[in-house]
């Protein structure tokens, strides 16, 4: 079995890549993908920590959370891509810094 620590380091790296992507990438699609990375890093954590849980009920908690958050991430991406699609239709761009009628 892979040690818990290794997987946790992997998920932390994945999460950092995600945060970096959200802050640094200007293309909204890439921002969306980076957010996916963040959510998946958390899912990995849930699954690996559920393996060390003392009782099977506590272990099920983490796996259920991972499943539910996968479902939510799918719904989130569906809404996000729809919004980006209408953004493309109205502004002809999905670059975050070019869409700036409203000032940040």
């Amino acid at each position: 079995m892979i040690p818990v620590l290794d997987v946790t380091i992997f998920s932390a790296a994945l999460f950092s890549v995600g945060v970096f992507g959200v802050l640094y990438r200007r293309n909204a699609i890439m921002v969306l993908l980076s957010i996916e990375l963040m959510l998946n890093a958390a899912n990995i954590n849930f699954v690996v920590f559920s393996g060390t849980a003392p009782t099977s009920a506590a272990s099920a908690d983490g796996q259920v959370y991972a499943l539910i958050s996968i479902a939510i991430a799918a719904a989130e991406i569906a809404v996000g891509l729809a919004i980006l699609l209408v953004l493309w239709k109205t502004s002809d761009t999905v670059e975050v810094n070019e869409v700036a009628t409203l000032r940040w």
Binding site: L39, A42, F46, S69
Partner: peptide, 15 residues
């Protein structure tokens, strides 16, 4: 983004 940040925090609490 806020959901992603909070979810990772929650996963650490679960751990």
């Amino acid at each position: 983004l806020s959901a992603g940040l909070a979810l990772y925090g929650i996963s650490l609490l679960y751990g």
